Amino acid sequence: MKDGAWSAAADGAPSGTAAAGRPMAAIFMLPPGVHLLDITGPAHIFYEAACYGAPVRSLFGSMYAGQETAVSSSTLAFGRLTPFDRLALEKGDMVFLPGLEGTLLLTDDFMRSAKPFLEWLVAQHKKGVTICSVCTGSFLLAESGLLDGLSCTTHWKYAERFALRYPGVRLLANRLFVREELIFTSAGVSSGIDLALHLVQEFWGPYFAAQIAKEVVVFFRRGPDDPQFSVFIQYRNHLDHRIHAIQDRLAQSLDEKLTVEDLAEAVSMSPRNLTRLFKKTTQITIGDYLEKLRVERAEQLIGDGQTVQSAALHCGLKSTNQLRSLLRRHREPR
């Protein structure tokens, strides 16, 4: 280890995921122009995991040797970063590479300046370190060569640009996140949180991950096969807090028998006014919206290995026949 290098083996921490006698190191790199939620979302998930007793130690790193600061795309500055060349990682550790300003990815000077870091990243992967990207962080992974011949995803807005620049990578459009052995790529922004929760589940089990999701008030966790354009985030491009409250209630209570009267009372409106306002605001009726939520949630549960009967029960449906009818109506080509 280099003089002054940071090592996860320090501090005599308890036995962890990476190797006996020390916690797993979770390194969150900050490229210039980093997107805030891409880095802070996953980092907070692992912070909560550590608070709940997970053997993990987090650190924020810089992409450049000798540089201990970075400025985000929102101009928020970060200090006390550990330069990548001072990080001593081992098999089982993890590196998160967040998204950054798209204009930088088109700049040859930036890509050349990132070369030493990208070579370091390849070396970490060879050691058995898990590498994760969020949003346009996938461009840096592809630039390093780590994605050659593999599948990945990225933010939908940059998919065409990615495909043109890296034809040797199999880009899977509209996927929340993709796993290729020890490499994970995610679509961006909130999907970084989904990926972090997925990793927590892999490392420490589903019950522990559910505790962390509850702590950060994420009641619905999405998986790798879920689309970027989920119904759980569609129909929400509006500013009416009352309708958002109804949408939250429906998404979090699929197994309950809620009436329009129940929903209207929760936001101090009449059932008639709520029905009218919901359709005007979202361009879809409450009934159709609820059906779409149930269909997507049921498909996820079945995909996770639950029976059709169990999925129907979790979605507040009376029978498997009712669920099958819904699935046919919403998923079969018309």
Rank of each mutant, 00 (worst) to 15 (best):
A8M: 00
D11L: 13
A13I: 06
G16M: 04
T17L: 12
A18N: 05
A19T: 11
A20F: 05
A26G: 05
A26F: 04
F28K: 02
P31D: 04
V34C: 07
H35E: 15
I45Q: 04
F46S: 01
L59D: 03
Y64Q: 08
T69Y: 12
A70L: 01
S72L: 04
S74E: 13
L76W: 11
P83K: 08
F84Q: 02
D93K: 03
L100G: 03
T107E: 13
D109S: 15
P116S: 06
Q124H: 10
K126P: 12
G128F: 09
L141Q: 07
C152A: 15
E160F: 07
E160H: 13
V169A: 02
N174F: 09
L176S: 08
F177Q: 02
E180A: 11
E180Y: 07
F184M: 12
S186M: 03
A187Y: 04
A187M: 09
A187S: 13
G188R: 00
S190E: 10
G192K: 09
L195K: 01
L195G: 13
L197R: 02
H198L: 14
Y207E: 15
A210K: 11
Q211G: 13
A213R: 02
K214W: 08
E215P: 01
R221I: 01
G223A: 07
Q234H: 06
Q234T: 12
Y235L: 11
L239W: 10
R242F: 09
R249F: 07
Q252N: 14
Q252V: 04
L258C: 09
E261L: 10
S268G: 11
M269L: 12
M269R: 06
L274I: 09
K280T: 12
T285K: 03
Y289C: 03
K292Q: 12
L293W: 11
V295M: 08
A298N: 01
Q300G: 11
Q309H: 11
A311G: 10
L313P: 00
G316N: 01
L317A: 01
L317T: 06
S319Q: 07
T320P: 03
L323D: 02
L326M: 13
L326V: 00
L327N: 06
R328W: 15
R331D: 02
